[in-house]
Computed example of a mutant assay.
Amino acid sequence: MSETGSLTERRRAATRLEIARTAARLFTEHGASGTTAEAIAAAAGIGLRTFYRYSRTKEDAVAPLLTVGGDAWRARLAATEPGAPLLPAVERAIRASLGAGDEDGDLASVRGLLRAAGEDPDLAAVWYRVNRDSEAGLLPILARIAPGADPLELRLVAAAATDAIRVALESWAEGEEHAAPVELAVRCLRALTAGLPRRP
């Protein structure tokens, strides 16, 4: 990809994320039923046609915000050396990602979104789709770290890690705790992987 093409893609990604943050704020403040695509576009400072170039529906607009955390933790996990013990590597990546701070306020925005998703099936569907895609994206990373592992075991680790973070975030969103749910995510991971072998 050329430098110009890369810059264009970065700008598009930044615009998508800004629209997602705007949509999340409106969903948090007004709920899904009280938020329109027109309102999101106006608040983001773009035209409605531009909005629909970036998102098929108002609910889909939040996907980049829900994806950014998963992208970050998979990137941390991908930096693991092949042959490293798999489950400790997954736990370290979760700790590093969820414990990295929330300078952009994205985690707080996710809390509002998850609360809104509890009352709107279309918004909930976006959340579950993001999690499904994240699980699929984990598999090749896990296979590179543990090249000799049983494929079924890798699928179980991918499912457990994804669900551990999902359940932790959903439980955290229901409460009032301000700190990121790092320990809750690790607790969920350990519970969900208790039956898997701990390889050296």
Rank of each mutant, 00 (worst) to 15 (best):
S2H: 06
T4W: 02
G5P: 03
L7Q: 12
T8D: 14
E9F: 10
R11M: 09
R12D: 09
R12H: 08
R12Q: 11
A13K: 10
T15R: 13
R16N: 03
L17Q: 05
T22I: 00
R25V: 06
L26R: 07
F27Q: 03
E29A: 14
G31Q: 03
G31T: 09
S33T: 15
I40P: 00
I40K: 01
A41D: 06
G45F: 02
T50S: 14
F51A: 04
Y52H: 15
Y54N: 10
S55K: 05
R56V: 13
T57A: 06
V62F: 00
L65W: 05
L65A: 07
L66R: 03
V68D: 11
D71H: 09
A72I: 06
R74S: 06
R74L: 06
A78I: 00
P85Q: 05
L86H: 07
L87P: 10
A89V: 14
V90C: 00
A93M: 01
R95L: 02
S97N: 09
S97Q: 13
G99L: 07
G101Q: 04
D104G: 01
G105E: 04
D106W: 00
L107A: 04
S109R: 08
S109G: 13
V110Q: 00
R111F: 10
A116T: 02
D120N: 15
D122V: 14
A125E: 12
V130K: 03
V130Q: 10
R132D: 13
D133N: 06
A136E: 10
G137V: 09
A143E: 13
G148P: 04
G148Y: 08
V157N: 06
V157D: 02
V157K: 02
A158V: 10
A159F: 04
A160D: 08
T162Q: 09
T162I: 10
D163C: 11
D163Y: 10
A164K: 05
A164W: 07
A164L: 06
I165V: 15
R166T: 12
L169A: 11
E170R: 08
H178V: 13
A179M: 12
A180K: 00
P181C: 07
R187N: 15
R190G: 04
L192H: 02
G195I: 15
P197V: 08
P200T: 12
P200E: 12
